[in-house]
Computed example of a mutant assay.
Amino acid sequence: MTRVLVVDDQFLIRAGLVGLLNAAPGVEVVGQAGDGEEAVRLAAKTRPDVILMDIRMPGMNGVEATERILADTAEPAPRVLVLTTFDLDEYVYGALRAGASGFLLKDSGPERLLAAVAAVGGGDALFAPSVTRRLVEAFARQARSAPGAKPPPDLATLTSRELEVLKLIARGMSNLEIAGRLFISEATVKTHLNRTMTKLDLGSRAQAVVVAYETGLVAPGR
């Protein structure tokens, strides 16, 4: 059973999400919040597996709430699936840096929503990589040129194989697809990714994607 916390400041959207999730087999909505502060409280109280997190909310927004929840929650931490639209791009990069596990467009259909929850709840760190990649590309460019931007980590600590895996992850490929491309097992891909994240002090696959673009390992649009 995947336990889900729904966070959105618009009542009708929140109610629709709750109704859809409660009707799905294997999913239980353990709470719903209308702002970031309430989300932080309920996440600590209900310990969900997945949080559907709106970004633009009054008071504490979704990025701040994601940071608080992932910083304060003991392992295993919930996986945050951000609800977004393209006109909220300025927030997406912050959500990635905060450790969000994936993104879902608000106009996605019911099947896509349920597939996203299942994917994130099952351990996939990025859902809809084609969408996420476009967003990451845009904000990785901005991050590198922004005044006072934090320098990206040094990739010199990675082996050539770890660099290959990181590059393919940034291109939106799944572990299974990477395994096929590199002629290695899926378990080996996971090992390389885990070592990469440990070396670079990263908390999620999404952050690994950001680093790949920030460091120039992957060039946007290519």
Rank of each mutant, 00 (worst) to 15 (best):
T2H: 09
V6N: 04
V7P: 02
V7F: 02
D9I: 04
D9S: 14
Q10D: 08
R14E: 07
R14F: 00
L17M: 15
L20H: 05
L20P: 00
L21P: 03
P25L: 08
G26R: 13
E28F: 03
V30T: 15
Q32T: 06
A33C: 08
G34P: 05
G36I: 00
E38V: 12
R41Y: 07
A44W: 05
K45F: 01
K45M: 11
R47T: 14
L52R: 04
L52H: 00
M53V: 10
M57H: 12
P58L: 06
G59P: 03
G59I: 02
M60G: 01
E64N: 09
T66K: 06
I69W: 04
L70V: 08
A71Q: 14
A71L: 12
A71D: 11
A74S: 15
E75T: 13
P76A: 14
A77R: 15
A77P: 01
V80L: 07
V82C: 07
L83Y: 02
T85H: 05
T85E: 13
D87Y: 10
E90I: 11
V92W: 00
Y93H: 10
G94C: 08
A95F: 05
A98I: 04
A100C: 14
A100G: 09
A100D: 01
A100N: 05
D107P: 04
D107L: 08
D107A: 11
V117L: 10
A119K: 01
G122R: 13
D124Y: 07
L126R: 06
P129C: 11
S130Q: 14
L135P: 03
A140W: 00
R141Q: 13
R144C: 08
R144S: 13
S145T: 15
A146N: 10
G148Q: 09
P151D: 10
P151K: 09
T159M: 10
S160G: 10
R161E: 13
E162P: 05
K167W: 00
L168T: 04
I169E: 01
A170I: 06
G172R: 06
M173K: 15
S174A: 15
A179M: 11
G180A: 12
G180S: 14
S185P: 09
A187L: 10
T188R: 14
V189T: 09
K190C: 08
N194C: 07
R195W: 02
R195H: 13
L202Y: 00
A206M: 13
A212Y: 02
P220I: 05
